[in-house]
Design a protein around this nucleic acid. Structure first.
Lengths: 185, 185
DNA sequence: ACCTGAACACCGTTCAAGT
DNA sequence: ACCTGAACACCGTTCAAGT
């Protein structure tokens, strides 16, 4: 006599993400997720393999959203303008997802899936190729992504404490990177 | 009748760091630390306020070592050469401390202390001032540090999967950054 | 086929009792 | 003044029993 499903993997992932964003990784407990979806904790193991798997599913959902927003920020006409737009989109995304963003590049949480990573990096690679030439496309993309990731990570961590205008630092860096890429062809 | 101390804060921090470097944050349990220093877990609370405090002490020890190595990498003659040397030192340090390094900029672990942060950033700020001029010193330092941190974080996370030579990407970026800083004055 | 209570091993932490 | 065993609340996870 089959028992009807009282929740779904989707609901479990959504609840997990909300808990993570609200209270950090510590708040994402199987008990809290179970309460949120209206089921007992052991039942969650019918939906996800375990807590680590649930975290991975959340991270991947966030990563795919990021990739989609980056794709949407590319106009396709002016590569320098597109790079500025993509960088801004990336930064705003991190600020909107301050607790989940840092997990995207965290090896302890498995990081994002290959699919999400490839999709995010492809847009940047194309812009890098347009600016720096095909031979420097990959190295240029790695420069831009490393900088953007480092910057927003430090910003989220509250690491910019020496005063000064953080917006200025962002704009200064972005113009410097565009110039460095354009000058290397 | 006083009981003699059977361990010390230093030994506790050293044991904690070793466990963290060997097995990640999960392996740093009060029980494992207690076993390592030859005492029962409750006794650790005479040395550290709790597990979070112990992690913070480990992170700070690592951060001060990083700051010292960076200081030692500065020659003081050629700013561009010094920047390359500092960046290389930074990267090698991260590779030598793959489990503790990511905690340095992790807000969940409190990150590094203000003292450690200030000391690390000051050397980079001076080099940035020498290359880009005093007015762009802070923004330039933030560009370099954000890139270096992002790069080594991604490298440690295994995020460079599109093939290509990661060493080339490092050198290409470093030369681009030196050019961008030098060109902005 | 899914849900549940009970149980297990583990965790950080507290505290009264020992020396 | 420090160390200890015992205890507490919590955690992830397993599993036999229910429907």
């Amino acid at each position: 006599m089959p028992a009807p499903a009282r929740t779904s993997t989707e609901a479990v992932v959504t609840a997990g993400r909300a808990l993570l964003e609200r209270g950090g990784l510590d708040a994402l407990t199987m008990q809290a997720v179970a309460d949120a979806v209206g089921v007992r904790a052991p039942s969650l193991y019918k939906r996800v393999a375990g807590r680590d798997d649930l975290v991975r599913l959340v991270v991947d959902q966030v990563a795919l959203e990021l990739a989609a927003e980056i794709d949407g920020a590319v106009g396709g006409v002016d590569a320098a303008a597109d790079l500025r737009a993509v960088a801004g989109t990336f930064r705003r995304f991190a600020r909107r997802n301050p607790a989940t963003y840092p997990l995207l590049f965290d090896p302890r949480q498995g990081g994002m899936s290959d699919a999400a990573r490839d999709r995010s990096s492809e847009a940047v690679r194309r812009l890098s190729a347009a600016l720096a030439g095909e031979e420097h496309a990959l190295a240029g993309a790695r420069l831009v992504v490393a900088w953007a990731h480092g910057f927003v990570t430090m910003e989220l961590a509250g690491a910019f404490r020496l005063g000064g205008d953080v917006e200025d630092a962002w704009d200064f860096a972005l113009e410097g990177l565009v110039a460095a890429l354009s000058g290397s062809r």
